[in-house]
Design a protein around this nucleic acid. Structure first.
Lengths: 259, 259
DNA sequence: CGGAACGTTGATAGCTATCAATCGACGTGG
DNA sequence: CCACGTCGATTGATAGCTATCAACGTTCCG
């Protein structure tokens, strides 16, 4: 998919909304709470951030990571992707950004035209308060540890992506991706009895896994035929997690804080 | 690789050596000096680290990244790789570690059996002093900035690796890799008129680029036939850099320190 | 109703893997 | 000194996974 073909189709730019009654204001607290123990004060701070003014981004819109403010954003609903486009139009998704994730967990680098593209309608909040708290590790030890682990987690997922692309077959890549997404979504409470909301098009899966749209389609059908997954109407359910895990060789990131 | 290093292949494990008269004690200072302006005191500190006691690692030996001390190591000669091995034995090199690089530029994560493997005889030094200096950004602003940028640089190379594996052909991958290595080696003064020392076997290139050994061989021969490269006796020369850059779609990492 | 977005299907081409064998360089041991 | 084993590079033949091209179906929406 060409980035240039799309862009901001309906909106000229981001739009500030008043704090909504969105049930997901606790997403960030939930995400970071998994990574470290948070004091009540820290949890409250993260809730406040999550309930703050929301910026809404339309599907396909690009978030300019060159801009200073973008580095402070946290995604609280919707899915986005870090994207790299080659000169000839080939497009590779580097990794997915899910609710609760920071748009720039590390120092930002502008390499190879890397951009962030929203895949769905997305909402972000300003996380400057989180960054500031993370620097004051005496007062906010939980937030400091959690944001650092989140950055390590992000990097671990990137390493998984390398292995996926380098040494796994199409079937294995899809299985691995689905388990990763299941894992990440479950951490922020986005997995329910009927699976998880799955907004990726088959083209997006292809861009993420280095596969063609057609081959993604055939792989998904094979997985359905084998009763490994159920994927319809925007919801994904993993029907045979043990078998999928064996196929995908998935291991949840084990992060040890040694340094 | 230095000829003198060839004779030491029978060593069983790491070994502490007295500071040698190795010409490469300035490698770390050179590497970090490219990323930030260093004061004379900072340069001297890095020189001292580079001239400190050296640990020697035999080819194929593994560096245990679980161990606390390994996180502080800097590579000052030889090449190593971060490696991920799947359950069934398939092996993927995640990225290469070159002289001047830290073994763990970020917080270390133990994900997916990730290990560090030496590809040649390698030497490391303890960089604890560098880490400590980096935390005192008032006294060592240059080192603090450079190590942070080095970590970002490392991540940028990882993103390049994803794009390479996901969306480039074998020929493009090899071209892109060679340019990256040329770029990285030139930063630490390892590129001379006759190119650069290139110790990778074709099997290692395959593991790095997600290709089979045989296909790497054929791709290299094609590149030689087209006079794009000269690769023999452990030295690599890029004969047509402009054309290679066009093919590989290589852009040197542009890191902006915004956060 | 037309168009767009997304998913599906069939046919074909092509890149890359795999298997197998050979060759040269090198170091070892008889 | 030479036979031998190992490692890395090379070559040929074949299989197979995945891309590409093209067409069609479905849903949604203005």
């Amino acid at each position: 998919m060409l980035l240039a073909e799309h862009g901001l189709q309906f909106m000229a730019g981001p739009e500030i909304r008043r704090p909504s009654s969105d049930v997901r204001s606790e997403t960030i607290a939930r995400r970071l709470g998994v990574l470290a123990n948070l004091s009540p004060a820290e949890t409250a701070l993260l809730h406040d951030v999550g309930a703050g003014p929301t910026t809404v981004w339309t599907p396909r819109s690009l978030i300019e990571t060159q801009a200073e403010y973008a580095l402070q954003l946290f995604l609280i609903s919707g899915w986005a992707a870090r994207v790299c486009e080659l000169k000839d139009g080939r497009c590779q998704f580097l990794q997915l950004i899910l609710p609760g994730d920071a748009l720039a967990p590390h120092l930002q680098v502008c390499d190879r035209q890397q951009t962030i593209q929203c895949l769905t309608l997305s909402r972000t909040v300003d996380g400057t308060a989180i960054r500031l708290a993370a620097r004051d590790s005496a007062k906010f030890p939980g937030i400091a540890a959690a944001t650092e682990l989140a950055a390590a987690h992000d990097r671990a997922l990137l390493l998984d992506q390398v292995t996926r692309l380098g040494r796994q077959t199409a079937y294995e890549r899809v299985a691995n991706l689905f388990i990763e997404l299941h894992y990440r979504c479950s951490q922020v409470g986005l997995v329910h009895a009927d699976g998880l909301a799955f907004p990726l098009t088959q083209e997006a899966i292809g861009d993420l896994l280095g596969l063609s749209l057609v081959h993604v389609n055939r792989t998904l059908q094979l997985m359905r035929r084998e009763s490994m997954i159920a994927l319809k109407q925007g919801r994904l359910m993993l029907l045979n997690l043990p078998e999928l895990q064996a196929i995908a060789d998935f291991r949840p990131p084990q992060i040890e804080h040694l340094g």
